[in-house]
Design a protein around this nucleic acid. Structure first.
Lengths: 256, 256
DNA sequence: TTTTGTGAACTAGTTCACAGCT
DNA sequence: AGCTGTGAACTAGTTCACAAAA
């Protein structure tokens, strides 16, 4: 690489935190940069970039500023350079290994999800308790191990991230086991709250919650009525035509 | 039901919006209330409730206040009553029907995901373009249709929500088709930005973004290295844990 | 001239603290 | 006494607007 500008990560030494929101946007930026690079774009300004996923240009500059000065005044950002920086910042150049707990429908689907490999993650193993599944492989070839071997395999394979794709009822125990094996980062797909010790980062994707907020939107935007439907409304609206109006605030990467 | 308190939805008439964050928490509250009810708890105070998923009590009261006054001073909230209100607010008492676009690994997994049915959603159909899949069913029995029949079936089945579980490359077209059929709420699992007209609510779950923020955490909490490690704790120090410190801000339902 | 990087202003979201009901 | 509902205070996050670099 060139003699890039100060790679000095502004917040590195300081215990200064980077917000989850910024982090999520960084991932989005990265994906978009890869796309831009693929189409041969060499350089992009924060405003052109912002426009793509309607977002404010200052936001992007601020987000990047957490980690250094990657831009060139009067020019913008070099696509390749910024992409590589982001990859490094997010740790994607380390080829982190991932274990998936639960070789059910969801676990198997995640194991073979191409997006993960594309972004530098390696799904190293699936774990389950069901005897029939153990020893087999996902369609994509990820081996299924006995949960009892979890710790051993985590060590052998240097697995750093665990994905929880087990039924909600057993999730707490599985998390305990995962934490006991020394895993520090967990992506959880089971519903409900999970407790983890403070040094462990838990990120949850709650499928039901996502659907429910859509359901709310449907109800509270009266013209929701099924494309075909005959009158479904119980109460003839006492007032107000379309009622509540779900917040349409920042349509940024946070939610979309 | 009893003669419940003012069901007057505080924000109903006004075009006042309810934030996405509040909405997500409402779903979480609902799940917890169901659990409480199952264990025979009749009434709960906002502070006891807040404690469960470490959250501030005022937050809960504020969230609920968007829709009316459901509590009883000096007592708290009646579990069943509040649960029913939340179900109604979220529109779960309407048994919304859902279509899943894409009968691949992910689509099939989602179709049979038990959490959806538990919460009152009915997965009515899967759609795909692959001839071999059309006419078959998911393991759980959800029929797979030809995408070309989408509009017809949406109308016949009164489907209100579509889930996008197709490869990223075709997602934009699929979304277009879904929107054209009159669908007003979309849950998207494909990566990348999608454009929808303003009246359509799009909510995206980006699996890669989630993993990447964990990856970041792993890198920026230096002691991440090898789970095998003996002498895990580098610093026993009372303060400053380790470099950057990914923001651990509100550990509320927003992220976990 | 163009576009970054950033303090200052603003907006959204959370927590405090207390009046008022039961 | 106990707990809700809510204005006021606070904190986090976003946008503005401009000085300084290329």
């Amino acid at each position: 690489m060139k003699k890039t500008n100060k790679v000095e990560p502004a917040s590195r030494e300081t215990g200064e935190a980077v917000s989850e929101l910024t982090l999520n946007r960084l991932s989005v930026y990265l994906r978009h940069l890869s796309a831009l690079d693929a189409t041969g774009v060499r350089t992009i300004s924060s405003s052109a970039f912002a426009e793509q996923f309607h977002l404010n240009a200052a936001q992007i500059r601020k987000d990047l500023a957490c980690f250094g000065e990657f831009g060139v005044r009067g020019v913008g950002y070099y696509v390749k350079v910024l992409r590589d920086h982001l990859r490094h910042i997010l740790g994607l150049d380390r080829g982190a290994k991932v274990a998936i707990m639960g070789a059910g429908n969801l676990g198997l689907a995640l194991a073979d999800y191409p997006g993960f490999a594309d972004d530098g993650f390696e799904i190293a193993a699936l774990f389950d308790t069901v005897r029939e599944k153990i020893g087999r492989r996902s369609r994509g070839g990820i081996p299924i191990y006995d949960v009892r071997d979890f710790k051993r395999i985590v060590q052998r394979e240097q697995i750093g991230i665990a994905v929880i794709a087990v039924p909600g009822a057993v999730a707490p125990q599985v998390v305990q086991l995962v934490v006991a094996a020394g895993i520090k980062a967990i992506l959880n797909f089971s519903p409900g709250a999970l407790k983890v010790p403070p040094r462990v980062k838990l990120k949850s994707v709650d499928l039901t919650v996502s659907l429910e907020s859509l359901s709310f939107y449907l109800v509270h935007n009266a013209d929701n009525r099924a494309p075909a439907a005959r009158a479904r409304r119980d109460q003839p609206p006492p007032k107000a035509p379309a009622s509540v109006a779900v917040a349409t605030r920042r349509p940024g990467p946070r939610e979309h």
